[in-house]
Simulated scan of single mutants.
Amino acid sequence: MEGTHSSRRINAIAEAVGAKTYLEIGVADGDTFFAVSVPSRTGVDPYFRFDPKLKESKRNIFWPITSDKYFMEVAKKKFDIVFLDGLHTFEQTFRDFCNAILVTHDNSLVVIDDTIPSDIFSSVPDMDLAISTRIREGGVGAAWHGDIYKMIYAIHDFFPRLSYLTVSDNGNPQTFVWREPRRYFSPRLGSLEAISRMTWFDLQGNMDLAFLTPEKYAIAEIISKLSPSSV
């Protein structure tokens, strides 16, 4: 299967660090899932756009349930890489992220999709409203990221022992998170309530905390942190 920008980035890191287990939340058509070249792959989606029974194998395990149910009732093993691409809302993604941290280890990577909206319309949590409003205002396109950008600030303010950066080119912006204490920790928003109330304009004023990094340098940085020789 032809790869996506997500699988390209994940594969480059997975190969370099020897990742063997992969978890994807929000599989949909499986364009990224099936293109990820990790030996053991687990996909979670309540509404797969293919018949998971026909695709299951020793390598591919599918759970047609919500991520909440998966983490609560199923998840037991640790994963080397977790890709979060579920609902485009801050609340659900934050919950998925907190749960994902519990099924990772010290050398794992968590990738969060859609963390920088392409415009003010794309930042609206409701997809239909985002697209219809863009069209009404004379815009074009169906780009939609929701308010997942708030995850950057939740991680920055409340997870000082996690480091992150955001890939800013060659595809959709994604934030990569790994376990490494950050120096000079200082919360900026101060509360989850303040973060939950952020707008697209607040994002623009705090874009420095996204740590935007070109893909080439981001992948090299992550590999240097997660490769076995660095541990």
Rank of each mutant, 00 (worst) to 15 (best):
E2P: 15
T4E: 10
T4R: 05
S6D: 06
G18W: 04
K20H: 03
T21A: 07
Y22M: 12
G26K: 11
F34G: 05
S40G: 04
V44F: 12
Y47N: 15
F48K: 03
R49L: 13
F50K: 07
K53G: 00
K55T: 08
K55V: 05
E56D: 02
S57H: 02
I65L: 03
Y70S: 12
F71C: 10
M72P: 01
V74K: 14
V74G: 07
F79Q: 11
Q92C: 12
T93Q: 14
T93G: 14
D96S: 11
N99L: 08
V103S: 09
S108T: 00
S108H: 01
D113Y: 01
D113Q: 08
D114F: 07
I116N: 02
P117I: 03
I120V: 12
F121W: 14
S123P: 01
V124G: 03
P125S: 07
P125R: 05
R134H: 07
V140D: 05
V140G: 12
K150M: 01
F159V: 03
L162Y: 14
S163G: 10
L165D: 06
L165H: 10
T166N: 08
Q174D: 09
T175Y: 02
V177E: 05
P181E: 09
R182H: 01
F185S: 07
L192R: 15
A194T: 10
A194F: 10
D202H: 09
N206K: 03
L209R: 14
E215I: 04
A218E: 07
E221L: 13
E221K: 14
L226I: 04
S227T: 13
P228V: 02
S229T: 13
